[in-house]
Design a protein around this nucleic acid. Structure first.
Lengths: 187, 187
DNA sequence: CCTACCGATCGGTAGG
DNA sequence: CCTACCGATCGGTAGG
């Protein structure tokens, strides 16, 4: 009745809501209408599920960044595309994103290191665009691109924590507000 | 040998590092050189420890905001004081802050609601200063103060995730960089 | 996917 | 703060 993919998706949902250590295999089975022990015909174990959910989160982000940069354009255009892409991933793949951002500590050392490397690769997309914008005069050249990219990603990653689709602000408004704030601040 | 306070502090450290559900009472006892069962002569239970650690986190932030605003000054001055205060709390009380920001989901409904209310009260300090700055012309008046305060707090709360004291940037540099970014963005 | 388990570990208690 | 436990739950397996 359930496919391996169903199990991974349900696991992402529970890991996102209750955390990896707060989710038992029986909880997960219950979510799918079967016993905890029955999950082992679909997956190797609980840790393998976390690895798969986290890997999907990482891939969604990197794919979005690659797509955003592939269209080219000026540094501001590409920065806006990166921002829009990131927000799109957060809103469309919330469970995987939450698990990717918040449950990496539950991975073993090797897998956790891979996540950190993936995040740095992704962040480098932002740093590169910022550097090019500083070089061509679109952005202030006195900014520290490492710190600024952290600030921008802090805003983007936090969207998962507060944004509700039911609210008064829609996806495009959020992209506009974020891009506007990053460019000009509050003055 | 150990006081109740020792237990609460060690609990904050472990909850911050491994999460509430990833920390057992035996882990905590081990951290203090005693058995898990011995903790119950100091505290009522595991959930009570979480409540206390989270409450401390909330209090540190609210106290810092009250102190920052008590000195008065222009809206930009007060915004800078709020930012400096928040960063100070994150760096000085990292364990409590991490637990407060990341483990609230492990609280029961009533306590979790209290945390959400405390966060909103704190956020309101930022909103008020922003509104006053918009009214007196120090800040752009076309900004949405609700969204902007979320952006600012996103940057501030994320400091816990990436900042290392050993790095090249010290506390004052971080406050300057954050305040500068919030005011002017990257252009 | 279920039945029937396994040893390990969980939060917590009684009594000293 | 320890000894000696308690029932419940954990991730996981054998066999069908």
């Amino acid at each position: 009745m359930n496919t391996r993919e169903d199990v991974v998706i349900a696991a992402g949902r529970l890991f996102a809501e209750r955390g990896y250590h707060g989710t038992s295999m029986r909880d997960l089975g219950n979510e799918l209408g079967l016993l905890g022990s029955s999950l082992y015909s679909h997956v190797e174990g609980k840790q393998a599920l976390l690895v798969e959910v986290v890997s999907r989160g990482a891939r969604f982000f990197q794919d979005a960044a690659d797509a955003a940069l592939a269209r080219g354009g000026s540094p501001p255009d590409r920065l806006r595309a990166l921002i829009a892409g990131h927000i799109g991933v957060v809103l469309d793949h919330r469970s995987e994103v939450r698990t990717y951002l918040n449950e990496a500590a539950a991975l073993d050392d090797e897998r956790r290191a891979a996540v950190i490397a993936a995040r740095d690769r992704y962040e480098a997309s932002f740093r590169t665009v910022l550097e090019e914008g500083c070089a061509d005069g679109a952005f202030r050249s006195d900014v520290d691109v490492v710190i600024i990219s952290i600030f921008i990603l802090s805003i983007l990653n936090a969207v998962e924590r507060w944004y509700r689709l039911s609210g008064r602000i829609d996806r495009d408004d959020l992209v506009d507000a974020t891009y506007g704030f990053v460019l000009d601040g509050i003055t």
